[in-house]
Write a protein that binds this DNA or RNA. Sequence first.
DNA 1: GTCTATATGGCGATAGAC
DNA 2: GTCTATCGCCATATAGAC
Lengths: 210, 210
Amino acid sequence: MHLKFQTYIFGRMGKKSDITRAKLIETARDLFLEKGFEGLKMQELADRAEMNKGLLHYYFKTKEILFQAIFKEAMQNLFGGVVKELVSNHAIEVKMHTVVDMYFDKLKANPGLPLFVLSEINRNPSLKSLVGITDFIPIFLGAVATKFKKEEEKTKFLNLVLSVISLCVFPFAAQPLLTKLLPDSVKFEDFIEQRRNYVKKIATHLIEEL
Amino acid sequence: MHLKFQTYIFGRMGKKSDITRAKLIETARDLFLEKGFEGLKMQELADRAEMNKGLLHYYFKTKEILFQAIFKEAMQNLFGGVVKELVSNHAIEVKMHTVVDMYFDKLKANPGLPLFVLSEINRNPSLKSLVGITDFIPIFLGAVATKFKKEEEKTKFLNLVLSVISLCVFPFAAQPLLTKLLPDSVKFEDFIEQRRNYVKKIATHLIEEL
DNA sequence: GTCTATATGGCGATAGAC
DNA sequence: GTCTATCGCCATATAGAC
């Protein structure tokens, strides 16, 4: 029987609907990151995901709901792992170097991520409150509060973290412009790779100054 | 006579149409920076500029043409003065400290500028070629070519410039998130002001390492 | 679950009176 | 130059057959 056959094929790996849903989310992620909330059109999403508009609304009632799912996932991807490392017990230099590697690896695979998150926060007012709900802000604040007592120390640490993140993220956000400034013989990927160690050296220096 | 009266009032300061045009551009700048190309609706622009949609299209035939005017202006604002300083005869430390001050002043007044330029470049394919047309990229490249001969030196200089710009720009781009990480008693403006000198110190160190 | 067809509204742009 | 009215299109979302 038809239904049983499907159950057999996909078994514990999930129903056919799970696969459709996964394909939809994957496509929506690509398209939202490329075009933003306003720029993504449901028709184009349906085409790229090889389904029809009706089906989109079956899985996610509105564009807004779909967008919030993608946005949450992007925030988690961008900050989840990094915050976990920052609140770990590792030595501070290890922390910072690990964060540098995490960002360079992540952003090489997904350079549009930071610009997407930062510009959508500014544009979709409902996200400003949603950001507060994500769990890694309180986690980070909690760790800072226990490790540093004086406000001056907190600010110094925040300056350090912000500097390292700035140095990692900005070159990817500015990739289209940066490409035009590189010597002809230098590919963007090569520039990025030498910069990975350059940023680690800066991080080490900033720690010593702390 | 009515027309003469207007001419008399505004005299050399420009015609009434210039004032209307200026108001339109000013409003469009605010609104495009806030919402991006797709996010700005001509109706909302007309309302905020206290005129009607018909008049919008009288001054700028299409939304796209209006947008390109605003975008070009934003690019000039963001890079024009900075590039001019970078290709000047000043000592390198003076250059970098001046650039830091320029960005901090500019972005305090206009924090949305970098995110607007960077995300629109990614989203509007026609801008990628328009970016190449702006004059400060060849100006910058020319100055770099005459000052540094070896490719390794060029890359080092580019690393320096990119680092300074990253450290200046990113905190403003991430303002909505950063605000949530500051100790309660520290206002964003105060954090930014202490950071101005912190970034200058880093810049000086990076130069010595150059 | 997946499809087609359609309702409903908003958008950019134009026409034409004043 | 500035206004009102309107066109034609495309967007999100829904209804209902299969």
